[in-house]
Design a protein around this nucleic acid. Structure first.
Lengths: 187, 187
DNA sequence: CACTACATGTAAACGGTTACATGATTCA
DNA sequence: TGAATCATGTAACCGTTTACATGTAGTG
């Protein structure tokens, strides 16, 4: 149940229409939460129905007309409650790691190329995050809200760094000293 | 579409019944792919229907009776195909990071406790993984399948290490030098 | 016989993904 | 007026989660 709270957060930062939200979820918001426009419109409908948000000055409530939303006090209360509530981290579920494990059984043909492709993608993402950090968080003078947002961005940076380093090490590891080739031994 | 392939991998490593698979997905398999018994039974049914796996020696094919499965050649082929195929990494979606971002808007009350709780959970998980590494991958002599499995475990270790370090830094960062308190400025 | 552990399932609700539909606005 | 873009929405499907149902085997 995180999408509604992601939308509440985004709307508190800045009242927006569905399409504007979609764009924000494709950009800055996207580095810790992604959502498509279909998800967003559906959720906006629910939040409005539940009186957590409301449409701002609806001139003509018709299809194809822009509709801006703002958060109601009940929405802010609910978001504050959810933000401080206890929620366990999810157990991992990563397809790439699964594929590495399966490669141990069915052979490693083609895995190298895929690892290198991922390495390239993560390197690019890391560069993007670093550029955002330089632009949005210059050294010194972090107010508390800034410090929180900076911490979130840093998580993205550190996570990409982890992937880059792990992929580099794994690629080295797999190419070096072929002791037991593609096919597993007990087969 | 990863669950069927996770099951194929697990069954190739060792033919199992549904309940045995459930237990394996709670243990070693769980550190890169989790699944509940409901998911597993449904998927076993589909894989059997599609002739990628088959039941081993069904003595009494009745409810409440144990049923072991093994992978058919078609299943192995499909797994090898999927393993080497191109699949982009998913965009991040982490509730804790979202909550930090929302805390920048609705205030940080209660967030500290939650960060410390997560830090503790990640430290424990890290210890668990390190124990597994010591037990299953003693230094030297890694055959290729071992090397792959070791790389997967190391990803788990490195990921938990990232969380521990990021949480430690973030906690320090939030407690030090309160320049702009709980409430954001532009509000 | 009751109780527990083992073992396999069914059903409902929900979130995310993909494809498609519809209306409004702008501009050539 | 036709095309492109902005903007909001519907529908179908699929995977995950949660709760519940059913049957078997072993033990006191």
């Amino acid at each position: 149940m995180s999408l509604p709270h992601a939308i509440l957060t985004a709307l508190l930062e800045k009242p927006s229409s569905g399409l504007e939200l979609t764009r924000r979820f494709d950009r800055s918001f996207g580095y810790f939460w992604s959502a498509t426009h279909q998800q967003i419109y559906r959720e906006l409908g629910r939040l409005e129905r539940d009186r957590l948000i409301r449409a701002l000055a609806p001139p003509v409530p018709a299809r194809g007309q822009k509709k801006e939303y703002e958060v109601l006090p009940e929405g802010r209360t609910e978001l504050a409650r959810w933000t401080a509530s206890a929620q366990d981290p999810k157990t991992m579920r990563d397809p790439l790691l699964l594929r590495l494990r399966s490669a141990a059984v069915v052979g490693t043909d083609g895995i190298d190329a895929e690892l290198r492709r991922h390495l390239d993608l993560h390197r690019r993402q890391l560069e993007t995050y670093r550029a955002i950090e330089l632009r949005d968080f210059p050294p010194e003078k972090d107010s508390m809200p800034d410090r929180l947002q900076h911490a979130v961005l840093r998580a993205g940076i550190d996570l990409e760094t982890f992937w880059v380093e792990w992929l580099e090490r794994t690629l080295t590891d797999l190419s070096a000293a072929p002791s037991g080739l593609s096919s597993p031994s007990g087969d």
